[in-house]
Design a protein around this nucleic acid. Structure first.
Lengths: 357, 357
DNA sequence: ATGAAAGCGCTAACAA
DNA sequence: TTGTTAGCGCTTTCAT
């Protein structure tokens, strides 16, 4: 008859201590891997481990966490799960966390500053050991919360001024994309339709601002023009962007020769509008999208894409958070330009690579 | 000078007790919401709460969890984050969890049975209060682990026999999809190319098996034929499936009139193969995909899709897990058939809805 | 090479 | 209406 154990069949180190004849502290050492440095006899440790295994013992991580004031959890807040970019972030993040023998906790905050703060506080309450802040609307506010409890953290994708950040080089990516669009665009005398237009995103958004800056610079360099009338960045909302594009097309009398689309979401809206147009409308158009979706390569017009390096972003974030960096450095990762599968001004040749049989 | 507090600036109920003059248990009650039933004077409770707020107190959830033997965490294991289906699961799951004032923990297990078990055990070690098992390779093995510690859990997307399950009605969805493909397919005398083929997935996979069963049934009913030579389900791997399709096309002398594609991943592989074909190859083809991707609606041939109702799946899973059901019932949720944006046997008319200006 | 004991921060009887 | 006390299961000095 046990004293009080059996609080749900859960074995504890005390149970193990009793069955092995060792003391709880010895059992603890044998099971937590510290037994070598505690000079527990190897045979003792092994025996305890064997018995633990046999009894189906699992460490109560809450108890350990409480005692050690750290949980073995690593947190990440993301704006949303439902995008390729962020969900691949979660995936890569998990890999890294698991490689370190810890447990990942990814929570989305829906771009809501209040939710961001609440979530971070919750994670802190669970004593997470470090925090990855991805695409937060107000990174510095979160930094303050973390700083108050001495929690190591790093900003990813959107930079802050109070913690190290690792972001994609939006300026460089947008430069490449704009240049590639211009290079692929048919030269046209049309003063309106012959230009490249920027669609989607929000001016207050850091990433959008950088991309617009790049867009302006490249347009000026390559065409010697101001991009003033060419930018429509009201919102990331697909329908709003589609509306902007429709208005534009109605004003300039058709699709423009080039289009810089600021995200995969915006692209979806644009496609909905495209679906209302006849196929001839696409004969001389080139699309650039600052985001990556494999299916886009198979549309009936060429799409140039920018793919951010999620691997590097996360890998560098870990490096930063694990090496005691001072201050708030901001690492910029170069994104990759994805050219169309095949390029041709005539959509009829788009998929013409090889004839089977 | 405090006795020993200040273990990192973290305020505890003892700090609060000292500053308010109340006892720790009163503070605890005031802060955990149980003060009404403990008949704490309202003014006392309010005062404590005010002070807690002021001092930036946050409950140590590990301590609370340890004491209460539950953590406030709700776990979910998914095969991967990086798919629309699973990532929208995570999103919806989070909403539900948060609506209940708890904290979601979603972890992916990469369809690795060992990883699945390890992850579930880890989550249990953190004393999660319930567990959602999504698309596990061996749900019953996980059920055993949960049962050993009396953990409530539910299977989602893939059924088990030892816990309640809620899954998509694969048979019904595949029936609808197959029928719609057949209905849209041009009648053809060609004994090989005039048929509908099933591509992708794995025979051992429950979902695939159900879909194949439906496929066979509908082909028999509608065409009075056996589907024996029409099914190629070796793997979910995009490239393997693409290879199967290529071999098939080479054998039958071109693309078949109809294609049942068993997942979005497989579809990607198929597209890669399609990219090697001339546009004329698609003139008389209809594609069905058992999965949903909005971009697929904008390809240059009609794509019929099946969209699973993530909302219902999760909502019913919560209902099951929260209502003490006996046994292991299996709820089937009807998926939705997404017809092509426009339908025409000639790809040239596909996007021809409206001419602007 | 191991055991005893204190305590992580919180909650819940049981007292008062 | 509130305080006292005893743990939750684990780690970690400090003894031995």
């Amino acid at each position: 008859m046990t004293k009080k154990r059996d609080t749900a069949g859960k074995t504890t180190i005390y149970d193990l201590a009793r069955s092995t004849g060792a003391s709880p502290s010895t059992v603890s050492a044998a099971l937590s891997g510290t037994w070598r440095s505690r000079r527990i006899k190897e045979s003792t440790a092994l025996e305890i481990q064997r018995l633990a295994e046999e009894q189906g013992y699992t460490t109560n991580l809450q108890a350990r966490g409480l005692r050690k004031a750290r949980s073995g959890l690593i947190g990440m807040v993301v704006p949303a799960h439902f995008t390729r970019f962020f969900s691949s972030m979660s995936q890569i993040f998990e890999d890294h966390v698991r490689a370190r023998g810890m447990c990942p906790v990814v929570v989305s905050t829906l771009r809501d500053p209040a939710e961001e703060r609440r979530t971070v506080e919750t994670l802190i309450s669970y004593a997470i050991d470090s925090l990855f802040i991805v695409g937060a609307t107000d990174p510095d506010a979160l930094s303050d919360i973390c700083a108050a409890v001495n929690l190591k953290h790093v900003n990813v994708d959107l930079p802050g001024t109070k913690a190290p950040s690792v972001i994609t080089n939006n300026y460089s990516g947008a430069r490449q994309l704009t240049r590639e669009i211009l290079k692929s665009m048919p030269r046209s005398g049309d003063p309106l339709r012959g230009k490249v237009y920027f669609i989607g995103g929000a001016q207050w958004d850091f990433a959008t601002a950088e991309r617009i800056r790049a867009f302006r610079d490249v347009v000026a360099e390559e065409r010697g023009e101001s991009a003033d009338g060419l930018i429509f960045a009201q919102s990331y909302d697909p329908d709003v962007s589609a509306g902007d594009l429709r208005d534009l097309c109605e004003r300039i009398g058709g699709l423009p020769a080039g289009l810089f689309i600021n995200s995969a979401f915006v692209f979806e809206g644009v496609l909905k509008y495209f679906a209302t147009l006849p196929p001839e409308a696409f004969n001389n158009i080139v699309i650039g999208c600052y985001d990556y979706d494999p299916l886009a390569s198979f549309l009936h017009f060429p799409v140039i894409m920018v793919r951010q390096s999620v691997d590097q972003l996360i890998a560098e974030a870990f490096r930063l958070i694990e090496s005691d960096v001072a201050g708030a450095p901001c690492l910029q990762i170069e994104p990759e330009l994805i050219r169309p599968r095949t390029f041709s001004s005539s959509p009829n040749e788009t998929f013409h690579h090889r004839i089977p049989n």
